[in-house]
């Protein structure tokens, strides 16, 4: 451990080498978890079969502007994310999960390294456009506008995207139904909805312009177990049935048990 480089992040089962990421769990074609040694070959084929890498993080580091020299919130992280898969980024508090999420979502820029989305570096992209058309973001605290109704929040997102459809409210209701909300909730102010319902509205909002990737920051952190399971089921469907890349930043075991791939962020050594 002594000769390990400070601030490096490693997955939980690769401490013996310098690889900073590792898939710790994979599924077969039928979406069943596999652990049987006899099935490993099939799994291997599944992993190595060519899948579209939608997002690639290459040696990304981030240091706050007011931090001391060498004090990185995130250092040399490299992950790849494929379409049609559900990912978890796991780590204890202070490991830089939220920082990584803000880098992926274009809310912050890498200090070093780069992030490639759909073949283009985020550095070269209009990040506002990226956030309102290429990715959808779901937050733990939902981040809905409380003075708007459920449907207005979703329609606002469509407006920002510049989506040209005739009846945006109908589309919003359709999305609400898709995430398990009744159409009658459309005209309800979001503060009159439960936490789970608000999170569904937030997911519906993130889907309003059909992005290729969904990024969720502790999306079930404020929810009970039952609701968490239901929300995770939505994400799973989005990944597996709609070929979206869904990345969930979490420290919930329940979430980790649901996803296809887990990336671990390890706390920096001081």
């Amino acid at each position: 451990m002594a000769n390990k480089k400070k601030n490096d992040y490693v997955s939980k089962d690769n401490l013996g080498n310098n690889v900073s990421q590792k898939e710790v769990k994979v599924k077969n074609k039928e979406n069943k978890y596999v652990s049987d040694k006899n099935e490993k070959k099939e799994v291997k084929e599944k992993i190595t079969s060519p899948k579209e890498i939608i997002l690639s993080i290459k040696n990304a580091s981030y240091r706050y502007s007011d931090a001391e020299e060498g004090d990185y919130a995130l250092k040399n992280v490299s992950f790849d994310f494929e379409s049609g898969k559900l990912y978890a980024i796991r780590g204890r508090s202070g490991t830089g999960k939220t920082t990584l999420l803000s880098l992926i979502s274009g809310l912050e820029k890498c200090t070093e390294g780069e992030i490639i989305f759909d073949g283009k570096s985020l550095k070269d992209m209009n990040l506002d456009k990226y956030r309102n058309s290429d990715i959808g973001i779901v937050f733990q605290s939902y981040n809905l506008l409380p003075f708007m109704t459920a449907s207005e929040n979703i329609v606002l997102s469509m407006d920002v995207n510049g989506l040209k459809i005739k009846n945006k409210k109908a589309k919003a209701i359709e999305l609400m139904e898709k995430v398990g909300l009744k159409a009658s909730y459309a005209n309800r102010k979001v503060l009159r909805l439960s936490g789970g319902e608000q999170q569904r509205v937030a997911i519906a909002r993130s889907l309003s312009y059909n992005p290729k990737m969904i990024i969720a920051d502790e999306p079930t952190g404020n929810l009970d177990k039952q609701t968490e399971t239901e929300i995770l089921e939505i994400f799973k469907k989005l990944a597996h049935e709609e070929n979206k890349c869904v990345i969930i930043v979490t420290h919930s075991q329940n979430v980790c048990d649901t996803v296809d791939t887990i990336y671990d962020l390890k706390k920096r050594e001081k």
């Binding site: 979502s105 506002d128 956030r131 309102n132 981040n143 506008l145 920002v160 995207n161």
Partner: peptide, 13 residues
């Protein structure tokens, strides 16, 4: 807060 949400969902400055 409203500014934060709107910026997050992609409204330009």
């Amino acid at each position: 807060y409203e500014i934060g949400v709107l910026r997050t969902i992609g409204i330009s400055k």
